[in-house]
Amino acid sequence: MPEPAGSMPELLQVAPGIDRWVMPEATMNAVVIADAGEALVVDPGTLPARAAELRAAIEARGDRVVAVVITHAHWDHCFALAVLDDVPAYAHPATIAELREHGETQREAVLGFSTGATADAVRHLEIVLPGSAVPEPRTLRIGALEVELEPLGPAHTSGDLVIHAPAAGVTIAGDLVETADDPQLDESTEVSGWLRALDRLASHAQPLLVPGHGEPCGHERLAHHRALLEGFASAGT
Rank of each mutant, 00 (worst) to 15 (best):
G17S: 03
A144F: 02
R196F: 11
G236A: 08
H164C: 09
R226M: 09
I142E: 02
P4T: 07
R20S: 05
A168E: 06
E150P: 13
R226L: 05
G62T: 11
V110S: 11
A202H: 08
D19Y: 13
E38P: 14
H225A: 15
H213D: 01
F113K: 07
H204A: 13
N29C: 01
R20V: 10
T27D: 13
L99R: 04
S158Q: 09
M1W: 03
T27L: 12
G62Q: 14
E178Q: 11
A227Y: 00
I18T: 03
D120F: 00
D160V: 08
A49L: 09
E187S: 14
M28E: 06
A235I: 05
E98C: 06
F79R: 00
E190Q: 12
P183I: 08
H213L: 12
E148V: 15
G112W: 03
G45H: 10
L198F: 07
R221G: 08
A80C: 07
A197E: 10
E98I: 03
A197H: 11
E10M: 15
D19W: 15
A56C: 09
G112K: 02
I127Q: 01
R221F: 03
V66A: 08
P135D: 00
D76R: 12
P93D: 03
N29A: 01
V69I: 02
V69D: 01
P166R: 06
T179I: 00
S114E: 07
A205F: 05
A97F: 06
P24F: 13
L129Q: 03
